[in-house]
């Protein structure tokens, strides 16, 4: 896009900041997803549940499978993360937190710009996502 068109096109600073953070986060996420999966399927780290065990139970409901084999879920992996399946799971967790990371950067810009309405909306959005991440929104248990 030429600089003249850029001048004519109104793009808020907050949007450009969000885009830059998203760019970094999404690329990092993809690299982590690939690395985690390689570590998992090539058994570079011992999995908590063997791949064969997972394949033997992936036809079952998630809740039923959890009764038989304890695949990583939620934050259950934090105390013992150095396993192939856990590393792959963590990379997926990272992807699911991308929006929250970007929204935090947007919150800072809205706050600096004294844009009260969007500061509140962004804060509420982060709170909803944080509630989901913390399991308060009905995920845990």
């Amino acid at each position: 896009m030429s600089s003249e068109i850029q001048k004519e096109t109104r793009i808020d600073r907050v949007q450009l900041v969000y885009a830059s953070v998203l760019d970094i986060v999404s690329h990092t996420g993809m690299v982590l997803v690939a690395a985690g999966f390689i570590a998992y399927v090539f058994r570079l780290f011992t999995p908590t549940v063997s791949i064969e065990e997972v394949a033997a139970h992936w036809h079952m409901r998630a809740s039923e499978m959890q009764k038989v084999v304890h695949v990583p879920k939620g934050w259950s992996w934090v105390s013992d993360p150095l396993h192939g399946d856990v590393l792959s799971f963590v990379s997926i967790v990272f992807l699911s937190m991308a929006a929250m990371i970007c929204l935090t950067s947007a919150l800072a810009v809205f706050f600096q710009e004294k844009n009260r309405i969007y500061t509140i909306i962004t804060f509420l959005q982060i709170t909803v996502l944080a509630a989901a991440v913390a399991g308060i929104a009905g995920g845990a248990g």
Binding site: G36, F37, Y40, V41, I51, V54, A55, W58, A62, S63, M65, Q66, V71, P72, K73, G74, D85, S88, F89, S91, I92, V93, S96, M97, A98, A99, M100, V128, L129, A132, V133, G135, A137, G138, G139, A140, G141
Partner: peptide, 18 residues
């Protein structure tokens, strides 16, 4: 992202499939 966490907590996200 919000809905994904419900699935992550229920053990419904298997890296082998996702």
């Amino acid at each position: 992202a919000a809905a994904a966490w419900i699935y992550l907590y229920k053990g419904a996200v298997l890296p082998l499939i996702a």
